[in-house]
């Protein structure tokens, strides 16, 4: 049995387990490998189109490779007025990539997101779901240093 199959099979008998299986794959790989999606379709007895349709509906699921660390900048209204634009610029500059891209070493992917529910200290950036509060453009290097 392939490694993907093993992860997916664990959710086979969970009602509605397809999304749970995707979460498990992402915990391991940080994304859903194309081959894993094909395997998931087989295990859950749905068409590949449906397996793909589910995976692409949700912004936290990603089919195909991306970085080890997913950096997300919240751009919802409270973070927007707290200066999210400036922080995005600083992130782009520090990483040398644009929003939606992954660094050449495969380490960082930069994404925009809507509210992550930490609005007590805007603007907010998350790195693999860990929130950083009150982020200023100056604070960006220090955050990235934790992962470099």
């Amino acid at each position: 049995m392939s490694e993907y199959r093993e992860i997916i099979e664990a959710y086979k008998d969970v009602p509605g387990g397809l999304i749970e299986a995707y979460h498990a794959l992402q915990r391991k790989y940080n994304f859903i490998p194309e081959q894993a999606l094909i395997e998931a379709a087989k295990v859950f007895k749905v068409s590949q189109a449906e397996a793909y349709g589910v995976a692409t509906f949700y912004s936290y699921l990603k089919v195909g490779k991306r970085g080890t660390y997913i950096i997300r900048m919240c751009e919802s209204a409270p973070c927007h007025i707290a200066g999210a634009d400036k922080v995005v610029e600083a992130l782009e500059k520090a990483l040398g990539i644009k929003v939606g891209e992954t660094t050449a070493d495969g380490k960082f992917t930069l994404e925009l997101t809507e509210c992550v529910g930490q609005c007590q200290a805007t603007p907010v950036v998350t790195v693999n779901s860990k929130p950083y509060e009150n982020v200023t453009p100056e604070a960006v290097d220090k955050i990235l240093a934790e992962y470099r």
Partner: peptide
């Protein structure tokens, strides 16, 4: 159960669809 980043899933019937493993 954990959602996966879709605001519309707060709507109760969309939420139910999501628990069922659908879009």
């Amino acid at each position: 159960r954990m959602g996966a980043g879709a605001y519309v899933c707060g709507e109760e019937t969309a939420l139910i669809e999501s628990i069922e493993g659908h879009r």
